[in-house]
Write a protein that binds this DNA or RNA. Structure first.
Lengths: 197, 197
DNA sequence: CGCATAATGGACCTCGCGGTCCAGCGGAGC
DNA sequence: GCTCCGCTGGACCGCGAGGTCCATTATGCG
């Protein structure tokens, strides 16, 4: 699968993936042709097939992997340690800032709406992303509510939070307003707030 | 715009829209060719262009209109009168049942992920759908919390609920599990529950 | 230095797609 | 029954897409 790559080759390959990811965020996967990618990277057709022998679909899978990593990375370092309420708030702020900046041209939107449906491999990557994400959130909920009455089990809470992010991002993409994401996140996190009365 | 159509013609036109909608739910808009639609409806190329002179894009707009109507209709009659907590619960049940049945092959998923991005006209239809939907939810929140302390303004609550549905549907499409939609809806509706203490 | 192999450029092929065109068919109204 | 005009069928076209191929250049390595 992975042939020998020199440093130069690896750089070119990465350039292709990054450029393709940006194009797909902008125009959607179905509207992005190999020629678009070729033009954006100043490469030739043969290079695309040299680094991705599987052709277009293999490029899409590589882009999906790259974008999935971006989704997680945008939430770090907070997603890694959600053991305090303050950390949860910082995570919320990071998510809001990230999607406010990117709007509908975000990795997550590209993954859910286009890449995830392009092939079984890409779909597996998306599924893995969601599982990883949900696991991190579940761990955070457990760490935060340790010793308290959880009210509902941690994984259910985590699922609701994940759905809130997804829904907010979808509505952001459709309307351009951040209010949906903001409200949905606030509401989903509300039961986790430590009560001080 | 609308030329004279006989009863037979109108039926054929509608057959095309419905079949195209089903194909798009299944395979996505970008994977659905005019030839697929032609085969599914036992029509000919010329009929497609006879009823939709604008070609493929006009068909997509018609499908978007049809699917938007389906989204609203699946929530009736409850969406029309959300003045009681019981009505809200029935609405929630209707939404859950609808998406459990359809899974990822739902009108809403097709609209958000594919149709909405296909053209400005289609996008306008999606935006109108969300506005209508949100208005109905906002009205329901206001009617339910009349005379009570709302805690947050009605439109913000409505937006959170809408985002919960969207997020739940996205996760349902990606994972096949209804838990996300269920949890997100429950959580989003919780603040509306009348307290009896 | 020289060879093997990776990296690159670009012509070329094939084919499926949206879209056009025209020639028959059929039914509703006079 | 005749005559419009909408309805239907299907051949045809041009283009852009993904994909193949081979020649050339650059590069790492013994």
């Amino acid at each position: 699968m992975s042939r020998t790559l020199t440093a130069k080759g690896a750089a070119t390959r990465q350039r292709i993936v990054i450029a393709a990811a940006l194009l797909i965020r902008d125009k959607g996967a179905s509207e992005t042709s190999l020629d678009d990618i070729r033009a954006a990277t100043s490469t030739s057709k043969s290079q695309l097939f040299h680094y991705f022998p599987g052709g277009r679909s293999e490029i899409l899978v590589a882009v999906a992997e790259h974008e999935a990593a971006q989704v997680i990375q945008a939430q770090q370092p907070f997603l890694g340690d959600l053991s305090t309420w303050r950390s949860w708030q910082q995570w919320r702020e990071a998510v809001l800032a990230h999607y406010t900046e990117l709007g509908e041209r975000c990795p997550l939107g590209a993954l859910t709406s286009e890449l995830g449906r392009s092939s079984p491999e890409a779909r597996a990557i998306v599924t893995l992303l969601y599982d990883t994400w949900e696991a991190a959130l579940t761990g955070g909920v457990q760490a935060l509510t340790a010793g308290r009455s959880p009210g509902a089990d941690a994984s259910a809470r985590a699922r609701a939070i994940l759905a809130a992010v997804q829904g907010g991002v979808v509505m952001l993409g459709a309307t351009g307003r951040v209010g949906y994401l903001e409200q949905a996140l606030t509401l989903a996190l509300e039961p986790l707030r430590p009560k001080e009365c």
